[in-house]
């Protein structure tokens, strides 16, 4: 995950996507990263079968964000018994789009000489936050005012840092602070982010020094995104 650290973007620890018991001996664990403006599936393949594995290939089912492999899976030599291999698969976002439920669901098929294995690996939304997600202040104000109250969802969120630190930390994960105000000691942060499919999402954080429970308000066209954006804020601010 070295290159991922260069930008400071938060990357989830790898989790098991395909347990060996369901993968005919192949275990796949992974996470999603974002480096130099590209989404990556960072995976670890482990051969827990009683035979060598070879002829690996990967395919993604149609998904909400048009994610497709940007290159074939590069596993040149066979994977021996008990061998582990780290594989990084770059993804493009110009593939066929099909809305999934939940919206961040991604279905994966991995083929080897033994079988074709299927698993699901939900994408943490922040892997899709692009570097150009900072809205013009005027656009932010207009959008915020034009969207009806029904498009706003509020969440309590634990933030154990100052507003300055939160602004910096969020920025490294492509959440940009468009404006901030301090009213009676209360910090109000107005933020924007953009997804790879060009959807803008706006947010407000209301936080009080000494009180770790802040309020995160998320405003966007599709409220389906609100929960996932909240999950991303939590992952970024609490790790």
């Amino acid at each position: 995950s070295g290159p991922g650290l260069a930008t400071g973007m938060y990357v989830e620890p790898k989790t098991v996507w395909l347990p060996a018991a369901k993968g005919k001996g192949l275990e796949v664990s992974g996470t999603f990263g974002r480096r130099q403006g590209q989404v990556f599936m960072d995976m670890t393949f482990t051969n827990k079968a009683m035979q060598q594995m070879s002829q690996f290939a990967i395919q993604l089912n149609k998904n909400s964000f048009g994610l497709v492999p940007a290159s074939p899976l590069s596993i040149a030599s066979p994977l021996n018994m008990n061998q582990t291999l780290d594989v990084s698969l770059p993804l493009n976002t110009n593939g066929p789009v099909q809305r999934m439920d939940p919206i961040n669901s991604l279905q994966v098929a991995v083929k080897n000489n033994i079988d074709v294995l299927y698993f699901s690996s939900p994408i943490p939304l922040h892997a899709l936050f692009v570097e150009t997600g900072e809205m013009e202040r005027r656009d932010f104000l207009n959008e915020w005012k034009n969207l009806p109250a029904a498009n706003e969802v509020q969440f309590p969120i634990e933030i154990h840092m100052t507003a300055d630190e939160a602004v910096q930390k969020l920025k490294t994960s492509n959440i940009f602070t468009v404006a901030r105000r301090n009213l009676d000691g209360q910090d109000m942060l107005y933020q924007s982010l953009k997804l790879t499919n060009n959807i803008f999402i706006m947010a407000e954080i209301k936080m009080q020094p000494g009180n770790p429970t802040a309020t995160l308000s998320i405003k966007c066209q599709l409220v389906d995104f609100s929960n996932l954006v909240h999950e991303s804020y939590k992952a970024i601010l609490q790790n």
């Binding site: 202040r137 104000l141 404006a179 105000r181 009213l183 209360q186 109000m188 407000e204």
Partner: peptide, 22 residues
């Protein structure tokens, strides 16, 4: 241009005020 920026500053201040106290 400068006037426009001041308007925006004011607009954000008003937005924050309207939302700071429920």
């Amino acid at each position: 241009h400068i006037g426009g920026d001041i308007d925006l500053d004011e607009s954000f201040s008003k937005l924050a005020e309207s939302r700071s106290n429920p």
